[in-house]
């Protein structure tokens, strides 16, 4: 698996030739007609380009984070890759199949997890969804048994099998959904916000499972997320889109550099004091009573900064906040020229 994890080097040969591309998008577009009521019987029609000339390839066995702000076109891309939506233009192939034309044939080879809505049968016990998948996907009996046993063990579902899906907690349901998406041994797993709304323990569990799935079974994984930690733990490669266009395609470290992102140190002092002077790398961005906010480069360790403040100021409490994706991308936008190893490879 080491090869695929190297990221960009594997995807393209020297002449830009694609090596074992499993997912291929070539100038894919999706244009929506948005109708808006502007008065009684009067409507305004507007075209929205949700995905605007997007090109990328994903090799078999890669695990790729697909990020961007709300409305950037992430879900639209996933919907086109699964055959739910028909592209307005461009060429799109998954495992050599055109998803929009051969939706049901493709369905046997992909697994999909929507974080916000379940693919499980809401009012029925969890096991019923799996039994139905067994028949509907025509999974051979022995294979079904084996996969179910393994997934139930890895995702700790044993005690939940007889529970109606609607009674499961969000984290339990998510694990149930992931198992359902994997029973038929899909070659690629799409996850749309798999950790949204999960507690820390559930998040860690889902991440660990996905990492193992990728290394042990070689399943290609494409996940959209708002959570940079998902990406940090799992993905060697990140694709950032905004306004339907590829903003960045490369390793995560490069994203932080490209976005010149900053982390924030929140400091609670014993009393109100003038802004902390903590050297050239950090600057105070906000003061509210005894609480102060300091920004420092994400590439830098927080330890020396914390040590210095603790030594010179009456410190009560502190916390470090990671930059969120919106901020990173916002900065990237503001400083567009410096970005992008590998983006715009159309």
């Amino acid at each position: 698996m080491g090869e695929a994890r190297e990221g960009s080097g594997v995807r393209e040969g020297s002449g830009g030739a694609v090596v074992d591309a499993f997912i291929e998008l070539d100038r894919v577009e999706k244009v929506f007609d948005v109708r808006r009521r502007t008065g009684f019987l009067r409507r305004e029609r507007r075209q929205v380009r949700a995905v605007d000339g997007l090109s990328f390839t994903v090799a078999r066995g890669e695990i790729v984070g697909y990020i961007g702000p709300n409305g950037a076109g992430k879900s639209t891309t996933i919907k086109m890759l699964t055959g739910i939506l028909t592209p307005s233009g461009g060429r799109l192939r998954v495992a050599g199949i055109d998803p929009a034309r051969e939706r049901t044939r493709l369905a046997h080879r992909i697994g999909v997890v929507f974080g916000q809505r379940t693919t499980l049968w809401w009012d029925l016990p969890l096991i019923d969804s799996y039994r139905l998948a067994h028949r509907m996907y025509r999974i051979p009996d022995a294979r079904y048994r084996e996969n179910l046993d393994r997934l139930v063990e890895l995702l700790d579902l044993e005690s939940l099998l007889e529970v109606p899906v609607r009674q499961l907690s969000l984290g339990q349901r998510m694990r149930g959904d992931i198992a359902a998406a994997l029973l038929h041994d899909p070659e690629v797993l799409y996850l749309d916000e798999p950790t949204i709304g999960l507690d820390v323990v559930s998040k860690a569990r889902v991440r660990e499972f996905l990492g193992e799935l990728n290394t042990e079974r070689g399943t290609t994984v494409l996940l959209t997320t708002h959570d940079l930690q998902d990406i940090e733990r799992l993905c060697s490669r990140v694709m950032v889109i905004d306004h339907g266009r590829m903003m960045y395609d490369g390793p995560l470290a490069g994203l932080h550099e490209a976005g010149e992102s900053e982390r924030t140190l929140v400091v609670d002092l014993e009393r109100e004091l003038p802004p902390i002077e903590a050297g050239p790398a950090a600057r105070v961005v906000r003061v509210e009573g005894p609480r102060q906010w300091l920004a420092f480069p994400a590439s830098q360790s927080a330890a020396p900064l914390v040590a210095r403040i603790a030594a010179e100021y009456p410190l009560v409490d502190l916390s470090v906040r990671e930059p969120d994706i919106e901020t990173v991308i916002g900065r990237m936008y503001a400083d567009k020229e410096t970005v992008v190893p590998g983006a715009g490879n159309s």
Binding site: K79, T82, G83, I84, R103, T104, R105, A107, H108, I110, V112, F114, Q116, R117, T118, T119, D123, M136, Y137
Partner: peptide, 23 residues
């Protein structure tokens, strides 16, 4: 409206059969 139709479209079966047999 609630978007759950998408979950039917990722299964290897015609959508009409799935909505007709649901519940």
């Amino acid at each position: 409206r609630d978007g759950t139709l998408d979950t039917l479209l990722v299964r290897p079966a015609p959508v009409l059969a799935q909505v007709a047999a649901d519940r």
